Structures are given as structure tokens and as C-alpha cells.
Simulated scan of single mutants.
Amino acid sequence: MTLKPLGVAALALLAERPMHPYEMYQLLLERHEDRMVKVRPGSLYHAVERLHADELVEVTGTEREGNRPERTTYALTEQGRTALRQRVTELLTTPVREYPLFTHALSEAHNLPAHEAVSAFTTYADHLDHEIAELGGLLDAARARGAEETYLLGGDYLLHSTTAQRDWIRTLITRIETKDFTWQPDNP
């Protein structure tokens, strides 16, 4: 069994303390971890059910508040803690070939006339500027709250890799505009 990213995130939350999936979902959003793991309430509930079926988490209780649906609280098992550590180690030590859409678009950008490509690159870089500002603000706020640096590694990496991507794109735009980069002739 290979833990998917959402399963890893759920186990990591339960390593902190027992909680129910809705609380886990809210915490992921509050910590902005939805930037690193695709999370939806339904998918998180299913991930926790799979973890329970695999005996990586256990039910510690159920509660009901008013008219709300019953909430089941889960805790990490020793088997779950071991699986979490093994998967995180695997992810940190073994590069995985990913297939990002932007890289694919770059490989096909030659199909656009240079001025259209520059316009698209500029729009993309502008979006990255906004993302960089937002990520920087989130990290600054977390540091101001006293968050330990080890908890901010993912966000810090995301900020630096996004900044590097934006800088590379802005350099490419300049190279195209100054004719330092030879663009294929416009297709007829």
C-alpha cells in the first residue's frame, strides 16, 4: 500500500492529536496546506476511511452536537506512525517524475507567435507575483505567531520555487523581446 498525499497529510495531522475529519479539513485550510495537497471534504473522509481499513488509524469516539451529523474521532496507530515516517522518508529521498501542465505548455509554446507567447508568459508571471506576495505574507504571519521553522519547510520551498519560476519566465520574456532568444517564425 502506497500512501497518497492526502493520506500522508491526514496521518500527519493525527500525529499531532486525535481529531475528526471535518476538524482535519478545517486545519488543512487554516494552515493553507491546500496549496500542497489537493483536499476536498469528501476526499478527506474517504482517505480517512481507507486509513482506518488499513489499520493506520483507529476510532477513539463519536460525538454529536445538536442537529449536526455524528462525528467520529480518529487517532494514529503505531502502524500508522510507522507508515507515515516511511512514506515521508520515501518522498524526501526518491525523486518522482511529475508532469506539470506548465512544463507541457512550455514545450508547445513554439506553436504561438512570439508576441502571443510573451503576452501569455507575462500574464503567468503576473499571477506568480501575486502568489509570491501571498505566500510571503502567510509565512511572515506564521513566523510572527511563533511557528517553528521545521513546520514551514513546505511553504518556504513553495515560495522559493515559485520565485525561481517567476524569475526564469521574466528572463525568458526579456530574451524574446530583445531578440536574444530566437523564436521560431510565426506559423502561416
Rank of each mutant, 00 (worst) to 15 (best):
M1G: 04
T2M: 12
T2Y: 14
K4V: 06
V8N: 04
V8Q: 05
A10V: 04
L11D: 11
L13M: 10
A15Y: 05
E16R: 15
R17H: 11
M19D: 09
H20S: 00
H20Q: 04
H20W: 09
Y22H: 13
E23G: 04
Y25Q: 00
Q26K: 07
L27T: 06
L29C: 03
D34G: 07
V37L: 01
K38T: 15
V39F: 12
V39C: 06
R40P: 00
P41N: 02
P41C: 03
S43L: 07
Y45M: 11
H46G: 08
V48C: 05
R50P: 03
A53I: 10
D54Y: 09
E55D: 13
E55V: 00
L56Y: 15
V57P: 09
V57H: 04
E58V: 01
E58H: 07
V59Y: 06
T60D: 00
T60Q: 10
G61P: 09
T62P: 00
E63L: 13
E65L: 11
N67A: 14
R68V: 00
R68P: 07
P69Q: 08
T72G: 04
L76P: 02
T77H: 06
T77R: 06
Q79N: 15
R81D: 07
R81Q: 15
T82D: 09
T82G: 10
R87C: 01
V88I: 13
L91I: 09
L91Y: 07
P95A: 08
P95D: 07
R97D: 09
R97A: 13
R97T: 11
L101V: 03
F102T: 01
T103F: 03
A105R: 03
A105V: 09
N111S: 08
N111L: 14
A114T: 05
A117G: 00
T123Y: 11
Y124L: 07
A125G: 03
A125D: 04
A125L: 06
A125I: 00
D126P: 00
D126F: 01
D126E: 11
D126G: 05
H127V: 07
H127M: 08
L128A: 01
H130R: 15
H130W: 12
I132P: 04
A133C: 07
E134Q: 12
L135R: 03
L138V: 13
L138Q: 08
L138R: 13
A144C: 07
E149A: 04
E149P: 08
L152D: 08
H160R: 15
H160P: 08
S161L: 14
Q165L: 15
Q165C: 13
Q165Y: 05
Q165N: 11
R166E: 09
W168D: 14
W168S: 14
I169V: 11
R170I: 04
R170H: 01
R170S: 02
T171R: 15
L172R: 14
L172P: 05
I176W: 10
T178M: 02
T178P: 01
K179W: 06
K179Q: 10
D180E: 15
Q184K: 14
Q184H: 14
P185M: 10
P185F: 07
P188Y: 01
P188C: 00
